[in-house]
Each structure stands twice: as C-alpha cells, then as structure tokens.
Nucleic acid binder design. Structure first.
Lengths: 205, 205
DNA sequence: GTCTATAGCCAGATAGAC
DNA sequence: GTCTATCTGGCTATAGAC
C-alpha cells in the first residue's frame, strides 16, 4: 500500500541525512534538528521512525561499517597471491575512499568512543576474519616468496598505509604545505605507490 | 604572593583535568562539570580561569600538540641518515605513545572537526617542517643509498605506520582477536619491526 | 504518516556572598 | 580566589491535532 511506500522512502531519506550529519559531526556534535533539515522533514518524524538519537546513530554506524567490511574481506578471502591482494586492495581502497572520505574517521572515532560497539558488529556474518590471510602469508614465507613477517603485522601495515592519509588529511596538508588539489594528487599517486612500497619490503629478492 | 601561587597551581590542575576529559570524550562529549570534578573544584572556577569551554579546549589542544611536535621535529631536523632517523623515530614514538595513548586520536579527531585549528598552530615557532627531510631524502636517493621515492610519500608512510595502531586499536583488536595484553605485545614488537619494514623497502640492495 | 507546539532536562555561563 | 545558587538557551523527546 501507499503508506508503506512512503514509509520506505522517508526512512531512507532519514538514514541518508543522518549519515551525512553524523559522519561530519560525530554522535555528540550532531543535532537532530540538523538531520531533520537535511532530510527535508521535521524532528518529530525522526523519533517516529527511530525512537531515539542513539538508535538512529547505531543504524547509521552499522550501515557505514557494512560498506567498509567487504573492502577488507576482498583482501582477506580471495585466493590470489599476497602480492596480488596488496595491489588490488590498495588500488581499490583508495578509489573507494575518495568517494567516502569521512568514513574511516567516523568509524575510528566512534569505536574509540564506545569500544563495545565492535562487539555488536562481530556477531554479524561478514565480519572480516584474518585466518585465511594468515595461512597464505605463512605459506608464502615458508616457500621463500616473502621475507619472514608476521601476518598480523603485515595486515596492520597494509591498512595503516592506506587508511591513514584519510584520517590525517589536515595534518598532512599542513606539514607538506599542500592545498586540496595537491593533496588529491598525492593520494591518487598512492594507488600504486603504496603497493610498491609494501611489496618492495616483503618480497624476497 | 600567596594568591599567585594558588592561581598557578589551580590553573595547572584545571589544565590537567581538562586534558584528561577532553582527550577521552572530545570537545562535544566533554562536560564542564566532569572537568571540575576531575580537578576537585567547582564549575565556576573553570570560568574564572578560562572564560569559556571553547577557550579551555583550545588551551588543552595547543598543549597536546606541543607535546607531539618535538617528536616529529626530531626526525625531520637532525643530521643523521634517513635510516637512522627512521629507526630512532619508530622506537621513540612507540614508547612515547604508550605513555599518551589518547593523544593521536584526540589531535586527529579535533583537526578534522575544525580544519582551521591547524592554522593557529602553524603560526607557532616549532611547527614541523619537511624541507630538511626532503633535501636529505633526495640526496640519499641520488647517491644511490635509497631507491627512488618522494620525500612526502615516505614521510606519510613513516607516520602512518607508527600512528595508525593507536588510532585503530579497537579495530585491530577485533580483527586480530587480541585482548589488551596481546595488543600491548603487538605494539611493542613494532618498535623495531616498523623500522625494518620501511628500511627494507627503501634501501637499495 | 506528518505536522506544530511544548514538556522537561541539562549544560554553559554568571551573580554575588564570603 | 573560591564557593552556592541561579539564569538562560538549546536539545531530546513526546503529546496531540490533522
């Protein structure tokens, strides 16, 4: 029926607006009024669809994380070589992040604010898991393809090099004296630079 | 005189308390009442020494940044080789961060919230500058000590690998299934691992 | 489902006694 | 300088008409 149709579109509008505002301002900085304005409705509607700010926030957070998780799973769970994984991930991740620049900061920030948020996420299917990646790294190390390295450490290095520029953007711009355009080019460069940097370090020569 | 003595200690107590609360909760999440409690005084005193929450926050932020800047300058402005710089920085930075675990997240978060904060900092003497580091990298590259690499990119790689674990702690703990103790060991390992990882990548073989 | 109006609370800031 | 008491505004949340 028609009401249901309206319900779904309004609900989606709210979620989109909430995503924008929460990602820009964080849970504490966001205002329900601003979300309502962004969605083109009024405050009462927000509470009609999501009983409280907290509940609305959790919906936004979950949906943001569900956008990020597949990116990670792609590295972890396919069957290609470590070198291929790194190249693909780096290239795709930077492209992905250029479309969602607020995402990493939002997730990192809110996870630090409330550590138990992550527990709820871990219950979900599709939560990234390192096991397969670990096995693959160990196998390539023992074959002599890679220099000895802990899989955990390598994984953190990969995501650190890829994610950090989006977290530390203001810092990097200030240190390296870059305007927005120069920063853009800098990040674009990293699509291939980062993979080369990593592979150069771990691949046996 | 006695009053001045009291003034200075109270002011310091406030600053310490504010540092604790702001770094844990952020500007928006922090409450003046909580800062007062932490300092063992009442709210009115906060406004006596710092006219507003905003002003108190800026004082805290500035002092946090002034703690971090020398760490970066140490890499950038001494005369040792790039390899030495990386080894020293990595070792010292991780040690330093283990003492101030909230610091990087605090700075990153608040800089993203208000980009112009960094402009105020840049006016200060002692703001990290990349020029000398850049010259050194270029020199070592042309001497054939290092593989070709942009100084900017190398610098970001160094700080990304060192800072990220402290930003993404909850994420890393969840992905790699580590408790606090295991995470601690993981980070401790990085004191030397990260430097080796970088040097392995950039040093000509 | 959608709106207006308002309840109820809480936080930052100030007045004023000591 | 330090306190208690209070003002004021803004925010989440709800009541209730349509």
């Amino acid at each position: 029926m028609k009401k249901t149709q309206n319900k779904e579109t309004t609900e989606q509008q709210i979620l989109d607006a909430a995503k924008t505002v929460f990602q820009a301002k964080g849970m504490d900085g966001a205002r329900m009024q601003e979300i309502a304005d962004e969605a083109g409705i009024n405050k009462a509607m927000l509470h009609y669809y999501y009983r409280s700010k907290e509940i609305l926030f959790e919906a936004v957070f979950k949906s943001a994380f569900l956008l990020l998780a597949p990116q990670l799973n792609a590295v972890l769970n396919d069957d290609s070589s470590i070198e291929e994984k790194i190249k693909n991930f780096t290239f795709n991740y930077v492209s992905f992040m250029m479309k969602h620049p607020y995402l990493p900061n939002f997730i990192i920030q809110e996870l630090n604010r409330k550590e138990d948020f992550i527990l709820k996420l871990k219950e979900n299917t599709g939560f990234p898991n390192l096991e397969k990646f670990k096995t693959k790294v160990e196998s390539e190390v023992s074959q002599g393809i890679l220099n000895p390295i802990e899989a955990d450490q390598l994984f953190v290095n990969i995501i650190a090099l890829n994610i950090f520029p989006f977290l530390g953007k203001p810092l990097i711009k200030a240190f390296a004296d870059k305007d927005d355009k120069a920063f853009q080019e800098f990040v674009d460069c990293r699509k291939t630079e980062v993979a080369n940097f990593i592979i150069n370090s771990i691949k046996r020569h």
